[in-house]
Design a protein around this nucleic acid. Structure first.
Length: 693
DNA sequence: GATCCTCGAGTTCT
DNA sequence: CTCGAGGATC
């Protein structure tokens, strides 16, 4: 940390003030770290803000004290923890997850491996190693001449973060390999984790000290490894299991995965003993069953088991499909389910007025987080699941993310528990709630008169894929609408910094940031603008089609329903919806006001041919899945579209290529099933550049 | 008229 | 991610 100006008084700064500024900076950095890295803030937001404001005030008063590295100068105040990047000599793989029944998953994997190896049914069963899948943080340890040289997180599989100083504090990781004639290079792959008991003790200490409790062992372990200060890591009871090797030099590779375990133990690494050599799929399924029964008795958390082909020679033969080995699968346990109580069923109002019932739940810890809400989608869904208020329900996190009510425990229903009744009037604006005969969704009829819909419309307008106004989030929109400072998107452009700064939780600095973001959003594209308007049934894709078809906004405004029909993928419903939107005087006024405020874009000549611009990838449809090493998903999409390709959301027979990155999910599986060619990022880039050459 | 393919919209928590 | 529904295709 760069010190505040030192001893020699300059600009008449009292030494006590300089010291106070330095202290504030230290404290704020520390709290940032607790908040962002430890995920365990020590002070309330209000106290934090007070420190921050004091520092800002002092810096404003004594500009000499202002240094570029002051926390006040960092965007968003976030202490981005930048560890040095480390490129893995051999990529750290992600293992494909099999989702099927117990017997099915093992059988599928076995069948796939046998097919790849061209084994016929008469061939003897294959040998596998079945291991536990630890729920921790994957780490690669590089030993040079026997000494730990680099420890890196997995990152995206290609490039991880250098966490060597932190990892050195973990006692079960040897600093030097055991034995003689050590290989010049030896990389170990394994998992850093926190044992259940250690986690509980850590939390007991936290509680005694009056600190915030940690959520779960995995996040705590991951947070601890990514500490800025290794001394903090040292205070966390972390452990390690080794399970594989990366690059090696001067090391005779063993013949089997089992022998790799033995070699790792020989070098002094802890290897979990709970693994078996299995013959054929039935043995794998039996291992899974046995582990599932013992899961809660294990001293650490696991989220499934891993099956690997035991022979390393066969592993080499099998190779990879875009960064996923064909010789291993993870077989995860089904999502954890917990019982809890339905405290009530509220409704939420969406941008289109859709009324969504949401179950308010008694907080329950499931799948690693505390869940308090779960969507019930719509009236029919509530009826189908037959959820009443006061019911005990089983909850899980679908796809390991979004909480869902699985079912009701009928025998626990209290007498007289009330069923859900769709309200007649919108809770936000009092307008009638209407459900059209063939629709599943009930809607508030208030339109933009309804504050909830107005807020959602504004959020949509400012969202990343629309005009992308950074910093204009739900809290801010809430205040702006409630204070009646903003009614339509056009009003956003009338806000001055002073208006913003007058709001709660808005210091001058943040207000200036938002102002700048608003200014920046004025330069946009026609497609984004159309999308931002929030026309029913017009999403990102349709907005692009409209922009391309008409070229300019005036042509679109002038189009009647028949003209709209000519746009690709626009049928009667969309044509009517679009025409009705633009026929509305209010909407035309808002559009005019936005243009007047300076929102602008480059207009192009209309492309009446619905095939769109021609490019080397014209006519090809791509589906993206997983995380690519370099390109963000949006970038990849833009690159493909720039040369005429199309990016779709799901895999079908019409898909030309699937581009798969790390942790690819069901879409990759579907691609393999439909025998659609799979590319990695490099393959995609090659295709783009070769095509355009 | 049935079926398949997409797109749109809504959603949780950190 | 998942569901519902619009549009295209056979």
């Amino acid at each position: 940390m760069a010190a505040a100006p030192s001893g020699d008084s300059r600009g008449g700064v009292p030494p006590a003030t300089a010291a106070r500024v330095a202290k504030l900076r230290r404290e704020i950095e520390e709290h940032n770290r607790k908040y962002y890295v430890d995920d365990a803030p020590e002070i309330s937001d209000a106290d934090y803000d007070a420190l921050f404001q004091e520092l800002e005030a002092l810096e404003a008063r004594y500009p000499d004290l202002l240094t570029p590295d002051s926390p006040t100068q960092k965007v968003g105040g976030a202490a981005k923890t930048d560890f040095a990047p480390v490129r893995h000599a051999i990529p750290m793989l992600s293992i494909r997850t099999e989702t099927d029944t117990v017997a099915g998953a093992a059988a599928k994997f076995d069948a796939r491996v046998r097919r790849e190896l061209a084994l016929d049914a008469a061939a003897p069963p294959l040998e596998y190693l079945a291991e536990l899948k630890f729920d921790g943080l994957a780490i690669s340890l590089r030993y040079e001449d026997g000494a730990l040289a680099v420890a890196a997180t997995r990152g995206d599989g290609e490039v991880g973060e250098d966490v060597t100083p932190n990892v050195r504090t973990i006692r079960s990781i040897p600093r030097k390999l055991r034995g003689r004639n050590l290989p010049p290079v030896f990389e170990v792959r394994g998992e850093v984790y926190m044992a259940r008991r250690d986690f509980a003790e850590l939390n007991a200490r936290q509680q005694a000290a009056g600190g915030r409790l940690y959520i779960n062992p995995r996040n705590t372990a991951a947070g601890a490894v990514r500490q800025i200060d290794p001394a903090m890591t040292a205070q966390r009871p972390l452990k390690f299991f080794a399970y594989g090797i990366g690059e090696t030099r001067g090391f005779a590779r063993p013949a089997t995965q089992r022998a790799v375990q033995a070699a790792l133990e020989g070098f002094g690494f802890p290897v979990n003993a709970d693994s078996v050599v299995a013959r054929g799929p039935a043995d794998l399924a039996a291992f899974y069953e046995s582990v599932a029964l013992r899961r809660s008795d294990l001293p650490f958390e696991i989220d499934g088991v891993v099956y690997k082909v035991n022979s390393l020679a066969l592993q080499d033969t099998l190779g990879f499909v875009s960064r996923e080995p064909r010789w291993a699968v993870a077989h995860k346990f089904p999502a954890e389910e917990m019982a809890t109580e339905v405290l009530g069923i509220d409704v939420q109002v969406g941008r289109t007025g859709a009324i969504t019932p949401v179950a308010r739940l008694k907080p329950v810890f499931v799948g690693g987080v505390t869940v308090t809400n779960a969507t019930l989608h719509n009236e029919d869904e509530v009826r189908r699941k037959d959820v009443h208020i006061g019911d005990t329900v089983i909850v899980r996190r679908a796809g390991d993310v979004i909480p869902e009510v699985v079912r009701v425990e009928m025998d626990k229903r209290p007498r007289g528990a009330a069923a859900f009744a769709m309200p007649k009037r919108c809770p936000e604006c009092g307008s009638a709630i209407v459900r059209l005969p063939d629709e599943a969704v009930a809607r508030c009829s208030g339109g933009l008169f309804c504050p909830a819909q107005r807020k959602q419309a504004l959020l949509h307008f400012a969202s990343r894929r629309a005009l992308d106004i950074e910093g204009l989030g739900d809290k801010l929109v809430e205040q702006l609408v409630d204070a009646d400072l903003v009614r339509t998107p056009a009003d956003i452009y009338k806000l001055g910094s002073a208006d913003l700064a007058a709001l709660e939780r808005m210091a001058e600095k943040s207000a200036a940031n938002v102002s700048a973001a608003i200014e920046k959003s004025k330069t946009t594209t026609l497609a984004r603008f159309i999308y931002a308007l929030g026309i029913r049934h017009v999403g990102e894709t349709t907005a692009k089609d409209l922009a391309r078809h008409f070229g300019g906004l005036d042509a679109l405004l002038a189009a009647d329903e028949a003209a709209l029909h000519d746009v690709r993928d626009v049928g009667p419903v969309l044509a009517e919806s679009i025409a009705r939107f633009f026929a509305e005087g209010h909407n035309r006024d808002v559009i005019a006001a936005l243009r007047k405020a300076g929102v602008h874009w480059l207009e192009a000549a209309p492309h009446r041919d619905s095939a769109g611009v021609l490019g080397p990838l014209a006519g090809l449809t791509f589906v993206l899945t997983g995380t690519l090493p370099e390109l963000a998903r949006e970038d990849a999409k833009a690159r493909i579209e720039a040369v005429g390709g199309k990016v779709a959301g799901s895999v079908s027979k019409k898909t030309s290529y699937v581009v798969a990155g790390a942790d690819a999910g069901s879409k990759l599986a579907k691609a393999v099933e439909l025998e659609i060619p799979v590319l990695d990022e490099a393959g995609l880039l090659k295709l783009i550049s070769r095509g355009s050459a």
